[in-house]
């Protein structure tokens, strides 16, 4: 595979000119990767425009004539339960990620800017939570929440999503880098208390990092299937992932439901793609790689 990487061999004397020349092989391979990643998305865009009969009869990558009919049929399905799923997903991911960013912010700040007995132990134990398999947590979480009558409620999906070991880790790295000790010390000399110090000085400085944590957690909750699938039984509380799954389960035997599933799949990925294209500058993966090196 690596042989494919070889560009034209460059003599030292012509290197300046050569660097301006395009490497078509590299460009071609990357475009191939891009096409591979876009094919299923393009397919669902096309398939969602097809009416039921067109879906099985026409070539897949040609648009059909039934998009509007499909969307209104999906909206009519069980009194619009699909849109309720979308709203639920927005609620779980939005509120969950907001709370998660808040908890990560205070925890990361405390771990980065204070030294106190137990700091290392607390950090290690929380971080080890990343390694706990979700299923090992989800089953007992369900049983315990059932004991306090919360299983199946919105809380049963929201509350377990709030603590993000990864978010706390990122917030700690970000607070250590973005909040200078001198500024905190100066404010402290001026008589500011700890909570005030955090709220009015550290928090604004940490904002870009917190947006990143919010976005990663938003995607993690929006895309999650296992936890809501374990917790929820009533389909009016489903997020869109579990909702589409239940639709597919009924639709597998009835190809008539295929168009609904396909249209639902298309509509369900639009919000995240919009969020992702709109807030590109906040998708700071470098926080992660930067942290790896330290």
């Amino acid at each position: 595979m690596s042989a494919l990487l070889v560009g034209p061999r460059v003599q030292p004397s012509v290197s300046a000119r050569a660097t301006r020349r395009t490497s078509w092989l590299a460009t071609f391979l990357l475009l191939l990767g891009a096409i591979y990643c876009l094919v299923p998305v393009l397919w669902v865009v096309m398939a969602a425009t097809k009416s039921r009969s067109e879906l099985f009869s026409t070539f897949t990558f040609l648009p059909g004539s039934g998009l509007w009919a499909n969307v209104s049929e999906l909206s009519a399905y069980r009194d619009g339960v699909y849109w309720l799923w979308m709203l639920n997903s927005g609620l779980y991911a939005g509120v969950g990620a907001l709370l998660s960013a808040a908890v990560s912010a205070v925890s990361g700040y405390a771990l980065a800017k204070y030294s106190f007995p137990g700091r290392g132990a607390i950090f290690t134990v929380i971080l080890a939570g990343v390694l706990m398999p979700p299923i090992t947590l989800a089953v007992p979480q369900y049983l315990l929440l059932a004991k306090v009558d919360l299983a199946g409620s919105y809380w049963s999906v929201l509350l377990p999503s709030v603590l993000s070991p990864y978010g706390i880790y990122l917030a700690r790295v970000y607070a250590a880098a973005a909040v200078p000790d001198e500024v905190l010390e100066a404010a402290r000399v001026d008589g500011a208390r700890d909570l005030r110090l955090f709220l009015s000085i550290a928090l604004p400085m940490m904002r870009p990092g917190l947006v990143t944590i919010f976005l990663f957690q938003f995607v993690a909750i929006w895309n999650n299937f296992l936890l809501p699938y374990v917790m929820l039984a009533d389909d009016t509380t489903f997020p869109v992932t579990v909702g589409l799954y239940s639709l597919l389960q009924q639709g597998a035997s009835k190809p008539a439901l295929y168009t609904l599933v396909i249209t639902g799949a298309l509509l369900s990925i639009i919000p995240l793609i919009a969020l992702f294209l709109g807030l590109q500058r906040y998708w700071r993966v470098d926080l992660l790689s930067g942290a790896v090196k330290s």
Partner: peptide
Amino acid sequence: LPRTRFRAFSRLAIFLPYAVPGIVASLL
């Protein structure tokens, strides 16, 4: 690589599936 074209487009397109839930990806 310094001489690759359409880098921004390819990077975005290859990253795009990250925004698609596993359930929907499997469905597609």
